[in-house]
Amino acid sequence: MRLPPGDVFVFVVSRTDRLKVPLAVLATIILATTLAPVIAPYDPMAITGEPYQPPTREHLFGTDTLGRDVLSRTLFGGQQSLSIVLIGVAIIILPGTVLGMSAGFYGQWTDRLLMASMDILLAFPNLLLALVIITLLGSGGWQIAIAVGIAGLPAYARIARTATATTRNALYIDAARAIGVRSDRLLSHHLLPNVLPLLLSFAAVSLSWTMLNSAALAFLGFGGDPSVPNWGVMLAEARYAFRVAPWMSIPPGLAITATVMAVNRLADASQERFRNRT
Protein backbone atom coordinates (compact mmCIF):
# COMPACT_ATOMS: atom_id res chain seq x y z
CA MET A 1 0.00 0.00 0.00
CA ARG A 2 1.37 3.42 -0.97
CA LEU A 3 1.29 6.16 1.60
CA PRO A 4 1.72 9.90 1.32
CA PRO A 5 5.03 10.69 3.06
CA GLY A 6 3.30 12.72 5.79
CA ASP A 7 1.25 9.74 6.80
CA VAL A 8 4.15 7.41 7.46
CA PHE A 9 4.35 8.34 11.13
CA VAL A 10 0.67 7.79 11.71
CA PHE A 11 0.88 4.58 9.71
CA VAL A 12 3.54 3.23 12.02
CA VAL A 13 1.59 4.24 15.09
CA SER A 14 -1.65 2.86 13.82
CA ARG A 15 -0.27 -0.52 12.69
CA THR A 16 -1.31 -1.83 16.08
CA ASP A 17 -4.85 -0.81 15.50
CA ARG A 18 -5.76 1.17 12.42
CA LEU A 19 -8.99 2.68 13.70
CA LYS A 20 -8.31 3.35 17.36
CA VAL A 21 -5.59 5.98 17.07
CA PRO A 22 -7.27 8.36 14.62
CA LEU A 23 -10.56 7.90 16.42
CA ALA A 24 -8.94 8.79 19.72
CA VAL A 25 -7.28 11.89 18.21
CA LEU A 26 -10.53 13.09 16.65
CA ALA A 27 -12.49 12.39 19.82
CA THR A 28 -9.98 14.39 21.85
CA ILE A 29 -10.17 17.34 19.47
CA ILE A 30 -13.96 17.33 19.39
CA LEU A 31 -14.23 16.89 23.14
CA ALA A 32 -11.71 19.66 23.87
CA THR A 33 -13.57 21.95 21.49
CA THR A 34 -17.02 21.32 22.90
CA LEU A 35 -15.79 21.49 26.49
CA ALA A 36 -13.85 24.71 25.80
CA PRO A 37 -16.12 26.86 28.00
CA VAL A 38 -15.34 24.54 30.94
CA ILE A 39 -11.65 23.79 30.46
CA ALA A 40 -10.30 26.98 28.88
CA PRO A 41 -8.40 28.98 31.50
CA TYR A 42 -9.42 32.41 30.11
CA ASP A 43 -12.08 34.22 28.09
CA PRO A 44 -10.75 33.77 24.52
CA MET A 45 -11.64 37.34 23.58
CA ALA A 46 -10.28 39.08 26.67
CA ILE A 47 -6.86 40.64 26.84
CA THR A 48 -5.35 38.96 29.87
CA GLY A 49 -1.65 39.68 29.61
CA GLU A 50 1.18 41.37 27.76
CA PRO A 51 1.27 40.66 24.01
CA TYR A 52 3.83 38.27 22.43
CA GLN A 53 4.52 36.36 25.67
CA PRO A 54 6.28 33.00 25.38
CA PRO A 55 4.63 30.05 27.15
CA THR A 56 4.51 30.55 30.91
CA ARG A 57 2.67 28.95 33.78
CA GLU A 58 -0.14 31.53 33.50
CA HIS A 59 -0.36 31.16 29.74
CA LEU A 60 0.63 27.61 28.80
CA PHE A 61 0.81 28.40 25.05
CA GLY A 62 1.80 32.06 25.51
CA THR A 63 -0.20 35.11 24.44
CA ASP A 64 -1.06 36.43 20.99
CA THR A 65 -0.36 39.79 19.32
CA LEU A 66 -2.91 41.55 21.53
CA GLY A 67 -2.20 39.70 24.78
CA ARG A 68 -4.96 37.08 24.68
CA ASP A 69 -4.40 33.54 25.91
CA VAL A 70 -3.42 31.29 22.96
CA LEU A 71 -4.52 28.06 24.71
CA SER A 72 -8.04 29.40 25.33
CA ARG A 73 -8.26 30.71 21.79
CA THR A 74 -7.13 27.38 20.35
CA LEU A 75 -9.76 25.49 22.36
CA PHE A 76 -12.55 27.88 21.40
CA GLY A 77 -11.16 28.22 17.88
CA GLY A 78 -12.18 24.66 17.07
CA GLN A 79 -15.83 25.58 17.46
CA GLN A 80 -15.90 27.88 14.45
CA SER A 81 -13.21 26.06 12.43
CA LEU A 82 -14.78 22.63 12.77
CA SER A 83 -18.34 23.83 12.16
CA ILE A 84 -17.23 25.57 8.98
CA VAL A 85 -15.46 22.42 7.83
CA LEU A 86 -18.42 20.16 8.65
CA ILE A 87 -20.91 22.38 6.84
CA GLY A 88 -18.51 22.77 3.92
CA VAL A 89 -17.97 19.01 3.61
CA ALA A 90 -21.70 18.35 3.86
CA ILE A 91 -22.19 20.74 0.95
CA ILE A 92 -19.58 18.76 -0.99
CA ILE A 93 -20.69 15.23 -0.15
CA LEU A 94 -24.47 15.27 -0.32
CA PRO A 95 -25.04 16.98 -3.67
CA GLY A 96 -21.70 15.65 -4.95
CA THR A 97 -22.69 12.02 -4.42
CA VAL A 98 -26.13 12.49 -5.96
CA LEU A 99 -24.84 14.43 -8.98
CA GLY A 100 -21.80 12.24 -9.58
CA MET A 101 -23.58 8.91 -9.19
CA SER A 102 -26.52 9.92 -11.38
CA ALA A 103 -24.12 11.07 -14.09
CA GLY A 104 -22.12 7.84 -13.85
CA PHE A 105 -25.11 5.58 -13.70
CA TYR A 106 -27.45 7.05 -16.29
CA GLY A 107 -24.72 8.11 -18.70
CA GLN A 108 -25.90 9.65 -21.99
CA TRP A 109 -27.05 13.27 -21.88
CA THR A 110 -27.47 13.28 -18.08
CA ASP A 111 -23.78 12.53 -17.82
CA ARG A 112 -22.80 15.07 -20.43
CA LEU A 113 -24.93 17.86 -18.99
CA LEU A 114 -23.93 17.34 -15.36
CA MET A 115 -20.26 16.81 -16.05
CA ALA A 116 -20.05 19.74 -18.45
CA SER A 117 -21.35 22.03 -15.72
CA MET A 118 -18.93 20.50 -13.20
CA ASP A 119 -16.07 20.90 -15.70
CA ILE A 120 -16.83 24.60 -16.06
CA LEU A 121 -16.44 24.95 -12.30
CA LEU A 122 -13.34 22.73 -12.35
CA ALA A 123 -11.71 25.08 -14.84
CA PHE A 124 -11.11 27.54 -12.00
CA PRO A 125 -8.54 26.78 -9.31
CA ASN A 126 -10.79 25.95 -6.38
CA LEU A 127 -9.50 28.65 -4.03
CA LEU A 128 -10.19 31.20 -6.76
CA LEU A 129 -13.68 29.81 -7.17
CA ALA A 130 -14.24 30.05 -3.43
CA LEU A 131 -13.01 33.66 -3.56
CA VAL A 132 -15.45 34.55 -6.32
CA ILE A 133 -18.33 32.99 -4.41
CA ILE A 134 -17.51 34.67 -1.12
CA THR A 135 -17.16 38.03 -2.85
CA LEU A 136 -20.76 37.59 -3.93
CA LEU A 137 -21.95 36.32 -0.53
CA GLY A 138 -20.09 38.72 1.76
CA SER A 139 -18.03 37.95 4.86
CA GLY A 140 -18.81 35.56 7.69
CA GLY A 141 -18.45 31.97 8.93
CA TRP A 142 -21.49 30.61 7.09
CA GLN A 143 -20.43 32.31 3.90
CA ILE A 144 -16.99 30.69 4.11
CA ALA A 145 -18.57 27.25 4.58
CA ILE A 146 -20.81 27.70 1.53
CA ALA A 147 -17.98 29.07 -0.61
CA VAL A 148 -15.51 26.28 0.14
CA GLY A 149 -18.33 23.73 -0.17
CA ILE A 150 -19.34 24.82 -3.65
CA ALA A 151 -15.70 25.15 -4.68
CA GLY A 152 -15.01 21.58 -3.59
CA LEU A 153 -18.11 20.08 -5.13
CA PRO A 154 -17.02 19.54 -8.79
CA ALA A 155 -13.89 17.46 -8.03
CA TYR A 156 -15.86 15.23 -5.69
CA ALA A 157 -18.72 14.80 -8.17
CA ARG A 158 -16.19 13.78 -10.83
CA ILE A 159 -14.76 11.07 -8.58
CA ALA A 160 -18.25 9.80 -7.72
CA ARG A 161 -19.11 9.68 -11.41
CA THR A 162 -16.00 7.75 -12.42
CA ALA A 163 -16.41 5.25 -9.59
CA THR A 164 -20.03 4.66 -10.51
CA ALA A 165 -19.35 4.41 -14.23
CA THR A 166 -16.70 1.73 -13.74
CA THR A 167 -18.87 -0.28 -11.34
CA ARG A 168 -22.02 0.09 -13.41
CA ASN A 169 -21.10 -2.75 -15.78
CA ALA A 170 -19.98 -5.21 -13.11
CA LEU A 171 -21.49 -8.66 -13.33
CA TYR A 172 -23.45 -8.42 -10.07
CA ILE A 173 -25.09 -5.17 -11.26
CA ASP A 174 -26.14 -6.86 -14.46
CA ALA A 175 -27.45 -9.72 -12.38
CA ALA A 176 -29.44 -7.40 -10.13
CA ARG A 177 -30.83 -5.62 -13.15
CA ALA A 178 -31.74 -8.94 -14.74
CA ILE A 179 -33.91 -9.92 -11.77
CA GLY A 180 -35.73 -6.58 -12.15
CA VAL A 181 -34.24 -4.32 -9.47
CA ARG A 182 -35.36 -0.74 -10.12
CA SER A 183 -32.83 1.97 -10.93
CA ASP A 184 -33.10 3.93 -7.69
CA ARG A 185 -32.72 0.76 -5.61
CA LEU A 186 -29.85 -0.35 -7.81
CA LEU A 187 -28.13 2.95 -7.08
CA SER A 188 -28.71 3.02 -3.35
CA HIS A 189 -28.39 -0.69 -2.48
CA HIS A 190 -25.96 -2.09 -5.03
CA LEU A 191 -23.79 0.67 -6.37
CA LEU A 192 -23.48 2.95 -3.36
CA PRO A 193 -22.02 0.33 -0.97
CA ASN A 194 -19.42 -0.54 -3.58
CA VAL A 195 -18.27 2.97 -4.37
CA LEU A 196 -18.53 4.12 -0.74
CA PRO A 197 -14.93 3.29 0.29
CA LEU A 198 -13.58 5.38 -2.56
CA LEU A 199 -16.01 8.19 -1.85
CA LEU A 200 -15.12 8.15 1.85
CA SER A 201 -11.44 8.46 1.22
CA PHE A 202 -12.02 11.29 -1.20
CA ALA A 203 -14.36 12.94 1.31
CA ALA A 204 -11.43 12.91 3.72
CA VAL A 205 -9.26 14.59 1.11
CA SER A 206 -12.04 17.13 0.60
CA LEU A 207 -12.18 17.70 4.32
CA SER A 208 -8.51 18.45 4.56
CA TRP A 209 -8.52 21.11 1.91
CA THR A 210 -11.88 22.45 3.03
CA MET A 211 -10.06 23.10 6.27
CA LEU A 212 -7.15 24.74 4.45
CA ASN A 213 -9.33 26.77 2.07
CA SER A 214 -11.54 28.01 4.86
CA ALA A 215 -8.43 29.02 6.79
CA ALA A 216 -7.20 30.85 3.70
CA LEU A 217 -10.47 32.73 3.30
CA ALA A 218 -10.51 33.64 6.97
CA PHE A 219 -6.94 34.84 6.59
CA LEU A 220 -7.88 37.03 3.63
CA GLY A 221 -10.35 38.87 5.81
CA PHE A 222 -13.61 37.13 4.91
CA GLY A 223 -14.16 35.73 8.39
CA GLY A 224 -16.46 38.49 9.60
CA ASP A 225 -15.61 39.26 13.21
CA PRO A 226 -11.81 38.87 13.64
CA SER A 227 -12.12 38.54 17.42
CA VAL A 228 -14.04 35.25 17.19
CA PRO A 229 -11.30 32.64 17.52
CA ASN A 230 -10.71 30.44 14.49
CA TRP A 231 -7.63 28.29 13.78
CA GLY A 232 -7.17 29.78 10.33
CA VAL A 233 -7.34 33.34 11.61
CA MET A 234 -4.98 32.49 14.48
CA LEU A 235 -2.48 31.03 12.04
CA ALA A 236 -2.69 34.17 9.91
CA GLU A 237 -2.18 36.38 12.96
CA ALA A 238 0.75 34.29 14.06
CA ARG A 239 2.38 34.77 10.68
CA TYR A 240 2.47 38.53 11.34
CA ALA A 241 4.32 37.83 14.58
CA PHE A 242 6.58 35.09 13.29
CA ARG A 243 9.77 37.07 13.90
CA VAL A 244 9.07 37.87 17.54
CA ALA A 245 6.84 35.01 18.69
CA PRO A 246 7.33 31.95 16.47
CA TRP A 247 5.62 29.67 19.01
CA MET A 248 2.29 31.41 18.42
CA SER A 249 1.61 29.46 15.23
CA ILE A 250 2.18 26.01 16.76
CA PRO A 251 -1.11 25.38 18.64
CA PRO A 252 -3.53 26.31 15.82
CA GLY A 253 -1.22 24.73 13.22
CA LEU A 254 -1.01 21.52 15.19
CA ALA A 255 -4.77 21.47 15.69
CA ILE A 256 -5.35 21.74 11.93
CA THR A 257 -2.68 19.14 11.12
CA ALA A 258 -3.91 16.67 13.73
CA THR A 259 -7.51 16.95 12.54
CA VAL A 260 -6.58 16.49 8.90
CA MET A 261 -4.23 13.55 9.57
CA ALA A 262 -6.70 11.79 11.83
CA VAL A 263 -9.46 12.11 9.25
CA ASN A 264 -7.18 10.81 6.50
CA ARG A 265 -6.13 7.81 8.57
CA LEU A 266 -9.68 7.10 9.54
CA ALA A 267 -10.70 7.07 5.89
CA ASP A 268 -7.83 4.75 4.94
CA ALA A 269 -8.58 2.40 7.78
CA SER A 270 -12.26 2.23 7.04
CA GLN A 271 -11.53 1.69 3.37
CA GLU A 272 -9.41 -1.27 4.40
CA ARG A 273 -12.27 -2.67 6.43
CA PHE A 274 -14.67 -2.42 3.57
CA ARG A 275 -12.21 -4.19 1.36
CA ASN A 276 -11.67 -6.99 3.87
CA ARG A 277 -15.37 -7.48 4.26
CA THR A 278 -16.07 -8.06 0.59
Binding site: M45, A46, I47, L66, R68, T135, S139, L220, G221, F222, G223, G224, D225, P226, S227
Partner: peptide, 20 residues
Protein backbone atom coordinates in the same frame (compact mmCIF):
# COMPACT_ATOMS: atom_id res chain seq x y z
CA UNK B 1 -10.26 43.96 18.94
CA UNK B 2 -8.42 45.90 21.65
CA UNK B 3 -11.29 48.40 21.78
CA UNK B 4 -13.75 45.49 22.00
CA UNK B 5 -11.90 44.07 24.96
CA UNK B 6 -11.64 47.47 26.70
CA UNK B 7 -15.33 48.26 26.23
CA UNK B 8 -16.39 44.78 27.35
CA UNK B 9 -14.99 45.57 30.79
CA UNK B 10 -17.50 48.36 31.34
CA UNK B 11 -20.41 46.45 29.79
CA UNK B 12 -20.40 47.56 26.16
CA UNK B 13 -20.94 44.73 23.69
CA UNK B 14 -19.05 45.50 20.48
CA UNK B 15 -19.53 43.39 17.35
CA UNK B 16 -16.80 43.70 14.76
CA UNK B 17 -17.52 43.19 11.07
CA UNK B 18 -14.44 42.94 8.93
CA UNK B 19 -14.98 43.63 5.23
CA UNK B 20 -12.66 42.64 2.41
Amino acid sequence: QVIQSQWREIGIDLKIEQVA
